[in-house]
Design a protein around this nucleic acid. Structure first.
Lengths: 219, 219
DNA sequence: ACCTGAACACCGTTCAAGT
DNA sequence: ACCTGAACACCGTTCAAGT
């Protein structure tokens, strides 16, 4: 975009590009994607942006506000299905999109769990889902029930999917199995499923049960 | 129990009662119940026990291990229904018990979300649920599906219930409603339900849908 | 075997000072 | 208007030293 500028002009331009709230939050998202949210500190993020930590406070109120901004950033990028879909199909696609989106930002569920879901991005997303439910014929109370179920299901599975069971955890768990077999035989017997399961498949299986139950209570 | 000892002997006994892993963890549970888990630090917990922070490391490996112990403590106190119950009834009681138990320790879901669920207490609880499902006729794969759904539902609602929406939050949310009405009308319309809902009722409503769905897929 | 004091390497955040 | 440096009040944890 600035390819026609002389080389040193480009350098200066990128280096001095003034910080903005959006740039800070995007950089924080990238940092959390790469290093995990536990490693995200104001000092380190400042270093990443070539600035002292304290400069960030000119653009975000504090770290919590920055985390809220990161959540909103992710929510606002969840793809909204278009076209005239049956409400159940709409919610299936929305659910799958949410899961894959959260999958690219493994920290987001965890941060939501500690920060809540009241930012503008999350509210807009919620509003969209409630709109789909209202169009499907749910009254306000039922739509609320449905939202809570769908939200809980989605956050729950996204959380487990992003809990990041590493190879090391697998090995550790498998080493435990002999002892587990004596003390918690049912857990030991199901170990293959616990270790090998596809969270997206699990999620869609459960979503179907929920959609069935909601439909049965609709008419 | 030491009521027959002379008064000052009792004082000395309680003051000098040697620290143990169990005493440390119980004190941490009490501290988190009273002050919230965010305020729980090794230094403050030490002070509570009349000891320097560093002494605690003689009884717990580190803070994370202590948190794991706290989770296990809570899980091991969830009441297990007795008697020969229908599997759905059994799971209903288990679910309700879990919700109220988690309600007395509002920090526990949050800590589980960051520490996972692989301690002995949690494993024993999981084993019990899997046993109920196996007795009901679920094969291993279906039992795994069912467990994931029940766990996700329970953790999700317990989390929301314990997210602790304060009076201040309510007031703040109500003040936002006029602006919300323009930007997220569906959310604004459902505000009364969002503010006033009973998490236990919501939970049981959703549990019924899940149990229905699981039953339909059982035969 | 258990407890302590001092220290290390971090945090988020404030604030006066610079430009 | 934005950035910096030094400081404050905390963390979890290590380690040598005490008893």
């Amino acid at each position: 975009m600035s390819a026609s500028l002389p080389y040193d002009e480009v350098m200066v331009a990128t280096a001095r590009e003034p910080l903005t709230r959006d740039r800070v939050i995007e950089a924080a998202v990238v940092f959390a994607d790469e290093h995990g949210v536990d490693d995200l500190s104001m000092r380190k993020l400042g270093a990443e942006l070539g600035v002292e930590a304290m400069s960030l406070y000119n653009h975000v109120e504090n770290k919590d506000a920055m985390l809220d901004g990161m959540i909103d950033f992710v929510f606002s990028t969840i793809p909204i299905p278009d076209g005239d879909l049956d409400w159940r199909d709409h919610l299936r696609r929305l659910g799958r999109g949410t899961m894959t989106n959260f999958g690219s930002h493994p920290w987001v569920v965890h941060v939501c769990m500690t920060r809540g879901l009241l930012g503008p991005g999350a509210l807009r997303f919620m509003d969209h889902v409630l709109g789909v439910l209202a169009d499907a014929g749910f009254d306000d109370e039922s739509a609320h029930h449905a939202w809570q179920m769908l939200a809980s299901h989605t956050m729950g599975y996204a959380f487990q999917a992003s809990a990041g069971v590493t190879e090391k955890d697998h090995a550790e768990f498998e080493m435990m199995i002999p002892r587990l077999a004596r003390e918690v035989p049912n857990v030991a017997r199901l170990a293959p499923f616990l270790i090998g399961c596809s969270w997206e498949d699990e999620y869609m299986f459960g979503l179907e049960i929920i959609l069935d139950g909601l439909k049965a209570r609709l008419k």
